[in-house]
């Protein structure tokens, strides 16, 4: 073995090729089957896509780097399930490009935060977390209420997502701007289209409490309120025995 190596280390190209071969094996074995084994992602016929407003909120979540302190992945451990709700299933982040499972909980997990607090609470908390949670170390995101939501490229965003596998219809893409506006403007004529395209359960309301305009706060709160609510699969999943103490 060492004799062979003694020869190999005299050839730079051969050595480089050997590195590529040896380093490729692990990734191929672990990653490729995740795309082909059907059980990797569960079936959930009720799984819906994010509305344009929720996706915009997700893009703000990404822009602000929330993953640095918040996970979106409840592990199969009893204390996590009791603290945060049913453990996360792969299908729940099926349309998440990129996934935001996170690696650190400086703040709590957000996988099932949707519906847990009121819109008013979220708005107050994001404006200044210490107004509602005095010991919080979270940054204040006061500019979210000040910034009008820029919807100009929402059709491009949905279109790009549809190209990489998120099932947005042409109608959804064509109406992306109108739907984003309508979801935060319940009294406008564009509100009806959102429910028509994304389902009865869609939240249509002024999330930031300001009915005059659509802000980044509207988008982010709309996203937070739908976290864990795109499918009921995790609640139907009756596998308590899978939990580990």
């Amino acid at each position: 073995m060492f004799g062979a190596h003694y020869k190999l280390e005299r050839h730079s190209i051969g050595f480089a090729l050997a590195i590529i071969v040896v380093a490729s094996i692990g990734g191929l074995v672990e990653i490729a089957p995740l795309f082909t084994i059907d059980e990797t992602v569960e079936e959930a016929p009720d799984m819906r896509v994010y509305t344009p407003l929720e996706q915009a909120g997700r893009d703000i979540y990404i822009r602000e780097g929330c993953y640095a302190c918040h996970s979106q992945m409840i592990r199969t451990l009893r204390d996590e399930v009791e603290r945060y709700g049913p453990y996360s299933l792969a299908v729940e982040s099926q349309y998440d490009h990129p996934m935001q499972w996170g690696s650190k909980r400086t703040g709590p997990d957000l996988a099932r935060v949707g519906g847990k607090y009121s819109d008013e609470w979220h708005v107050a908390h994001l404006n200044n977390p210490r107004d509602v949670v005095p010991v919080s170390v979270m940054p204040a995101y006061s500019w979210l209420s000040r910034n009008t939501l820029d919807m100009s490229d929402f059709d491009l965003r949905l279109n790009a997502l549809s190209k990489i596998g998120v099932p947005y219809s042409e109608e959804m893409i064509a109406n992306a701007q109108a739907d984003a506006y309508g979801q935060a403007m319940p009294n406008s004529d564009r509100a009806a289209g959102v429910v028509e395209r994304y389902g009865e359960a869609t939240n249509v309301r002024s999330f930031d409490g300001n009915p005059d305009r659509v802000t980044e706060m509207d988008a982010l709160v709309a996203y937070l309120q739908v976290l864990g609510r795109l499918t009921d699969a995790a609640y139907r999943n009756d596998s308590e025995e899978a939990l580990e103490e």
Binding site: E92, H97, P98, M99, D153, R157, G165
Partner: peptide, 19 residues
């Protein structure tokens, strides 16, 4: 999302993206 925008979406999602 367009060649005129800084924004893109990674082609992998969810569990495959995590891996």
């Amino acid at each position: 999302i367009s060649l005129a925008s800084a924004k893109s979406y990674p082609i992998f999602s969810g569990v495959q993206d995590a891996m």
